[in-house]
Design a protein around this nucleic acid. Structure first.
Lengths: 340, 340
DNA sequence: CTGAAAGCGCTTACAG
DNA sequence: CTGAAAGCGCTTACAG
C-alpha cells in the first residue's frame, strides 16, 4: 500500500538519487562504491533515497568506467556427461559468491571455441575458464595478449600460456592398475575417451605404464569417446571376444556405466567375473544399479584452485601461467573386486 | 612471422582505428554497426585497418550507448537432474546463434532467486529466463516494472505477469492413465515431485482425474522430490507394502529410474509384474539398463517458443504475458506393459 | 568530507 | 556519404 506506485519503466540513475537526496552525483557514486571518507549521515540519507527510488548502480556503466566488468567467461559443453553440469553449477555458484558474474558460452558440434571467442572478447570479460573443448594455441595467445587470463579446467596445454587445473590423471591410472593387479586380475582392458584429450591420454598412459611396471602385458585397448554408448559398445566387443578381460578400466564414469550395462546384458557377473572401474565419481555412479568403483576427482579443490589461479591473474596480468594437478582418490564400491 | 608483433595489452578502440584509417571515429562506428549509407571504399579500408589492429567493438560501451546489452539472464539450477543441463545448453546455443549472450545464475540451496535478482538486474539484462526455481510474484512484478520481460520455463505463475512455456503436464498425466488402464493395470501409484511445483501438481492432477474418469480409485500417492533417491525409496515402500501396485507413474524420469532400480533390487519383474512410466525423456532413459517408457517433453519447441516469447517482449514491452502449453508425446519403451 | 569535471568507448541525431 | 558533438551512467583524480 505504498504511496509511490512506480509504474514508470524508466530506470533510475545516480543523478536522480543525487537530486532527491540533495547531494552531488559523485557522492551517490561514492556511497555505492563503499568509499570510506563519507559522513554517516550523508551516506544513510543517500541509501534511504536510493531504496525508495529502487536505485541500483548500473554495472555496465561501472564496467566502462573502471575497465573491469567483473564478468568471467565460461565455455562449457558436453552437458550430456553429468560431470560437466556439476562443474558448471559449482563454478557459477562460487564465482557469484565472490562477486563475479558468469557469461556462459557453449561450444556445440558446429561452433568451435575459436569461433566463439570474438563474442566472448567483445563483452570484455575479465577472465576466461574453459571447461570443455580446447582453445587453439593461437587463440589462447590472442586472448592472453589482450590481458585476459585463461584457465583450462580438466585439461591442459603446456606452452600455450594458459593456466590449467586438472586431476592427476596419470597417477589415477596408475592407482587403478595397482589395485587391479593386487586383487589378482590378469586380463586387462582400457576403454578410451576421445583420443585427443589430455584427460584420456594421461589416464591411459598411467594405467599402461603401471601395468608394464608390474609385468603385465595383457591389456586390450578399445576405442571410446567418453559416452555411455561408446562404453556399452566397447565392453560388448571386449566381452564377446575370444579372450574377454576380467578387468576393465574406463576413461570416465559414463563410459563405465555403459560397460556395466553391457556386462549385465551379456550376463557377465560383476564383480565376480569382471571388475569395472571408472573415473570422475559422478552422482550416478552411486546408484544402486551401478555402485561404481571409480577414481574421484577432487572437484571442490579443483574448482577452488581454478578460480584462485584465474583471479590472481586478473589482478596481476604479469603472473606466469601455472599447471596444477590435484590427486584423485579411489572410491571403492561394488563394481570391482579389490583387495581391502 | 608477421611483422607487427603485438605485445601490448592495451585494447584497441575505434579512435585508433579511425586515426589509422584516416576517418572519423563515427565512421568506424558506422562500419561496425552495418550502417548502409557508407561508401564501399571507406568501409573496406576501415575493415582492413581494424583487422590489422585486431579491433573489436566494445560491447559494454555499445550497451551503455544503446541501452541494450543483448544479454539474457538465465537462472538455472538442479543440475543433477539431467533434464536441466540439456535445457541450459540448448538455450545458450540458440540464444547465441540469434546474437544474444547468456549471463548465468544458479539458485543454490541457500540463495533464493529473489536474492540473486539485484545482481541480475545490475547488469541490465534485456530479458530473463527462469529455468528452475520460482520467482516470488513480488519480484516478478519488480522486474517487469523495469521493463525486463520474464519467461518461466517448465513452470508457470498465472497473474504474475511473467510469460511461461510448459509442457501440457496435465494432458501428459491423463495420457499415462489412459494407457495404463487400457493395458489392464489395476493397482496404481504416483510418486510425486516437489509438491510446490506446477509441474508436479499438473502431472498428478491429470493422472488422478483421468483415473477417476475411468472409474479407477485404487491409486496410492507416494511423496518424492524429483530425485533418483526419492524415487528409489518411494518405490521400495510401495513394492514392499501389503498391496503393491502393478503400475507406477513417476513425476519425472530421474524418479522413475530410481523406481526401476528399486524394483530390480526387490526382484520385481519389469514390465511383467510392474510397469513404470516417467516424464521428460532424458537421455538416460534410453540406456539399456532402464529402457524407460516416458512422456517426452517437446524440448526443442519449448525452447524455441520461450525464446520467441521473450524476444518479442524485449522488442515490445507492452505485449501482454502469455502462457503456452505444448503437448508431450508418449515414448513406448520396455519399462511398461502397454497395449500397442 | 564533498563537488565539478574529465573520461571510459561506443551510438546517433544533426548538419553539411 | 561523413564529421563534430552530445550523451549513455558510472568512477575517480583534483580541488577545496
Amino acid at each position: 500500500m505504498s504511496q509511490t506506485k512506480m509504474i514508470t519503466t524508466k530506470r533510475v540513475t545516480s543523478h536522480e538519487v543525487a537530486q532527491q537526496a540533495g547531494v552531488s552525483q559523485s557522492t551517490v557514486s561514492r556511497v555505492f562504491s563503499r568509499d570510506t571518507r563519507l559522513s554517516k549521515t550523508t551516506s544513510e540519507r543517500v541509501m534511504r533515497v536510493a531504496g525508495e527510488l529502487g536505485y541500483k548502480p548500473n554495472a555496465i556503466a561501472r564496467s566502462l568506467s573502471t575497465q573491469r566488468t567483473q564478468i568471467i567467461g565460461v565455455v562449457a559443453s558436453y552437458m550430456t556427461n553429468p560431470f560437466f553440469p556439476v562443474v558448471l553449477e559449482a563454478f557459477t555458484q562460487r564465482l557469484h559468491e565472490l562477486g563475479w558474474r558468469v557469461l556462459l558460452f557453449t561450444a556445440g558440434k558446429s561452433n568451435d571455441v575459436d569461433v566463439l571467442l570474438p563474442d566472448v572478447l567483445a563483452y570484455q570479460v575479465d577472465g576466461l575458464i574453459i571447461v570443455t573443448a580446447t582453445l587453439s594455441s593461437q587463440m589462447t595467445r590472442e586472448v592472453l595478449q589482450r590481458g585476459i587470463p585463461v584457465v583450462l579446467f580438466n585439461r591442459y596445454a603446456p606452452g600455450s600460456g594458459a593456466s590449467a587445473v586438472s586431476c592427476a590423471n596419470d597417477e589415477g591410472g596408475r592407482m587403478v592398475a595397482d589395485e587391479l593387479v593386487r586383487a589378482g586380475h590378469t586380463r586387462f582392458a582400457y576403454i578410451t575417451g576421445r583420443p585427443d584429450t589430455s584427460t584420456n591420454v594421461d589416464r591411459q598412459k598411467g594405467f599402461l605404464e603401471r601395468l608394464a611396471e608390474l609385468k603385465v602385458t595383457d591389456c586390450l585397448i578399445e576405442p571410446g569417446d567418453f559416452t555411455y554408448e561408446a562404453g556399452f559398445a566397447a565392453a560388448q566387443r571386449l566381452l564377446t571376444s575370444s579372450r574377454p578381460p576380467d578387468a576393465i578400466f574406463c576413461a570416465n564414469d559414463i563410459t563405465a556405466l555403459g560397460a556395466l550395462d553391457a556386462a549385465r546384458k551379456l550376463k557377465v557377473s560383476v564383480p565376480n567375473e569382471l571388475s569395472v572401474i571408472g573415473f570422475d565419481d559422478i552422482p550416478m555412479g552411486q546408484w544402486a544399479a551401478y555402485d561404481l568403483t571409480t577414481v574421484r576427482q577432487p572437484l571442490e579443490d579443483m574448482i577452488e584452485a581454478s578460480i584462485e589461479l584465474l583471479l590472481e591473474r586478473v589482478e596481476n596480468t604479469d603472473l606466469a601461467s601455472v599447471l596444477q594437478f590435484l590427486p584423485g582418490t579411489l572410491v571403492r564400491r561394488g563394481s570391482a573386486r579389490l583387495s581391502p
